[in-house]
Design a protein around this nucleic acid. Structure first.
Lengths: 167, 167
DNA sequence: TCAAACTTTCAAAAATTATTGAAAGTTTAA
DNA sequence: TTAAACTTTCAATAATTTTTGAAAGTTTGA
């Protein structure tokens, strides 16, 4: 396989993976492109490479910056803004873990806690509801604790953890 | 909060969470409904409770069955089919881990291995590409190993693991 | 075998989500 | 200041995904 072909395939794959995870294609592709670029890229570069519009590029870059995995990088003496992504894959994983906990798990925990706290009227329906939502709360809470641990430990925690688990 | 209100809120929340994860709303809601129903439900029951069409219900039930988290349950002497979900939350987590590994991580690993194996022509571009795709491969591989461990161990592995990690 | 009871399929319609591109906004060098 | 260089916004449009509902298919009891 040639470099150009490999690059395209990688960007395409990352794009459709993103879709599968509720991240839009352009956002995932921009991230993929920046991840493998040795140099920061300008908006023009990105538009050209991915064949997407200026508006689309601008909006998705902003979201990636919001997620904390893409940064603005000014080049000395240049007016244009350049963009670069977090290059350390472990740091990338940590940042994603951090954001997913904050954006998804925390709000879910809140709702689960709330709904599992209804008064038990003794009916089978209510009892099952309380039992299951409490169990989900436990699961989500454990998952969150693990994510936070990933987010806060040293950067190769994930690998080390796995080694530890094998013992 | 009243039971009806709590139930609605739970089903709604599960539905939008699903959307966030690339699972469609009806599918997530059907799952939520079955999860908290003490008795198996018929297609009519589900249609009525969630106000969705027969076709929609049928297709999404099939997908849930495909995922291995919802089962057909025949009631003695009844022609109609009933449906029930995996009630053990840990088993549910294991099944989801198993399927996500199979459906998403394995294919991604395959592509990453493939593209990171291009010939190194010495250019900065190629070197960065190889370096980053290899790093992603490592990460995905570790994540997959962890998922598989979740999928194959005893049902409260997740909790035990977390306790272990705290030590 | 038939026909009632039920489920699945799938083309069309609706809903949602992503993308465009041009106008408005911002920044900076002179 | 001004105006060129650049970025952001957002209404309109396009693409994608979900949902519907009726027709086709299947199963089962008599």
């Amino acid at each position: 396989m040639k470099m150009t072909e490999a690059k395209d395939k990688f960007i395409q794959t990352w794009g459709s993976l993103g879709t599968l995870w509720g991240i839009n294609k352009a956002m995932a592709q921009i991230h993929a492109l920046l991840l493998i670029s040795p140099e920061p890229l300008s908006m023009e570069d990105i538009m050209e490479e991915l064949q997407i519009s200026r508006g689309n590029t601008s909006m998705n870059l902003r979201q990636l910056i919001d997620w904390g995995i893409v940064f603005k990088a000014s080049k000395a003496g240049e007016r244009k803004e350049y963009f670069t992504s977090e290059k350390d894959i472990n740091e990338l994983a940590r940042q994603i873990a951090r954001e997913r906990s904050r954006r998804e798990i925390q709000p879910t925990l809140k709702v689960l806690k709330e709904v599992s706290n209804i008064e038990d009227d003794g009916s089978a329906e209510t009892q099952e509801f309380i039992k299951q939502t409490k169990a989900l709360y436990e699961l989500a809470d454990t998952a969150d604790a693990i994510l936070n641990r990933i987010a806060n430990q040293e950067s190769n925690w994930l690998t080390k953890t796995f080694i530890k688990l094998l013992k």
